[in-house]
């Protein structure tokens, strides 16, 4: 089965700021292979290299060494992004546009015909419950509404792969549940979802497989049920052990 996402010995180095010529390794020889229909959780503490890996997958940053492919196409080729949807952690949209205009803009970028775009925009605005606010400027939206616009834009092209960077960050419990429902729905439709999150309970609920990365290195990868069985602990405990956290009561 051809992987949807594949990284081979992926290494990303940055020249660290304020330290002369010293290089910081953000991702160390990362090997990932994610197949179609999987919901894959990409975990790690802040600064572990999750976002950098996503940046490479999305073509924002070039790898220092190794390779990264989406649907078997090198991520540096724009065509690799034809079948993906991306939701950034925070809302980054043109605030002078309305939700409908924003979705139409992205639909044009994907080259969707007008009739298809109209239908898709209608469906998505209903899905994220913004159909009544569709003609309001995005700058007047609450944070939750902006996050929902983000989700709608990520789905505009009916993507086969969805990359979500902390999709529930800053959402209220209802908003989180809605996002979980959408991920579940996409999974049922056979879509692949790759997402990073700090909500380990949520990851345990929706993910088929997870990978935990720390200081740029892949520490653990596998099916959630297998990891829980192997380590005799829940995902949160496994995560804390891997990053070397010792609770004061254990010390």
């Amino acid at each position: 089965m051809e992987p949807i996402i594949e990284t081979r010995n992926l290494r990303v180095e940055f020249r660290a700021q304020n330290s002369g010529s010293e290089k910081k390794v953000a991702v160390k020889d990362l090997n990932l292979r994610i197949c179609g229909g999987e919901v894959f959780g990409f975990l790690g503490p802040n600064g572990a290299g999750k976002t950098t890996t996503m940046n490479v997958l999305l073509g924002f940053v070039n790898a220092t060494r190794g390779s990264a492919c989406l649907f078997g196409v090198d991520v540096r080729e724009p065509i690799a992004r034809q079948r993906i949807g991306y939701l950034p952690e925070l809302t980054y949209y043109y605030k002078f546009l309305t939700a409908e205009e924003l979705l139409r803009f992205y639909a044009r970028i994907f080259g969707l015909p007008r009739a298809v775009a109209d239908q898709r925009i209608e469906q998505l605005l209903k899905l994220v419950e913004l159909d009544t606010a569709r003609r309001r400027l995005i700058k007047t939206y609450s944070k939750g509404m902006q996050q929902r616009v983000g989700l709608a834009q990520a789905l505009i092209n009916n993507p086969d792969l969805l990359i979500l960077d902390e999709p529930t960050s800053g959402l209220d419990p209802l908003g989180r549940m809605k996002v979980r429902e959408i991920i579940q729905r996409l999974k049922n439709e056979g879509k692949t979802v790759f997402f990073s999150s700090h909500e380990l309970g949520e990851v345990e609920t929706v993910c088929d497989r997870v990978a935990i990365i720390n200081q740029g290195e892949l520490k653990v990868e596998g099916r959630v049920a297998d990891l829980v069985k192997e380590h005799q602990a829940n995902l949160e405990r496994i995560f804390l052990n891997i990053i070397g956290y010792q609770p004061e009561s254990d010390a």
Partner: peptide
């Protein structure tokens, strides 16, 4: 600055 470039370049745009 507003980071709108990221969702934009995550689409098939050169």
């Amino acid at each position: 600055e507003h980071r709108t470039i990221f969702p934009l370049l995550a689409k098939p745009v050169t």
